[in-house]
Design a protein around this nucleic acid. Sequence first.
DNA 1: ACTATACGCAACTGATTGGTTGCACATCGG
DNA 2: CCGATGTGCAACCAATCAGTTGCGTATAGT
Lengths: 108, 108
Amino acid sequence: MDARRLDELFAALGDPGRRSLVETVAERGSATATELAADLPVTRQAVAKQLAALAAAGLLHATRTGRETRYEVTPGPLEEAVAWMVEVGARWDDRLAALGRSLEQRRG
Amino acid sequence: MDARRLDELFAALGDPGRRSLVETVAERGSATATELAADLPVTRQAVAKQLAALAAAGLLHATRTGRETRYEVTPGPLEEAVAWMVEVGARWDDRLAALGRSLEQRRG
DNA sequence: ACTATACGCAACTGATTGGTTGCACATCGG
DNA sequence: CCGATGTGCAACCAATCAGTTGCGTATAGT
């Protein structure tokens, strides 16, 4: 488990605005900075920065086609985060422990 | 699912130092700010602040006995965070989706 | 070719924050 | 009772960051 990736990942999810962006991109399948900014009270550049941070954390990946840069969700990192939480929390919580075993199974 | 709690939770986990504190407290079962600061290159007050943030996020809970304030892990919030990730990521990742169903089962 | 659209980069600003120092208060042990 | 230990609170500092504005560039459509 890469610690730095976890840092970026949790930090990225820590901001309400960024988490909201992830949710919106998730709902729509894909989106551009301009599209997302249209529904928000912030500028396109602000959204673009957040998207860049999310992409750096590995949560999103960008694909530029023509003059558009579309973002999509990359689910992999979420699993890493879940794995970390399970590992830390497993000792105290039976449900999390069980969930951890379930994760192990599906990974193997 | 309380959005504000998620904000605090992810933000708390976003800092490497704080996540490390959670891990250490998890390993030892419980710890005080002074104990934790002894192994770190920062002051006790710095650690105390971080612990306060983690407690505010619900990840830790403090118990003062005499002149000591011991912190322990509260696993509940971790489940909330896992639930959020599963919800957002389930659409793209079969393993996360399966994990979500597993979580639902154990919650019901 | 020209205009409108979509984007990225850079500089600046205000707010947040992680960390420090200093101090006052409570508790334990002699 | 008194010194040592453990905490909490407040002020302060440096760094980071979210957001803005301004500008240059590339692509699409007419």
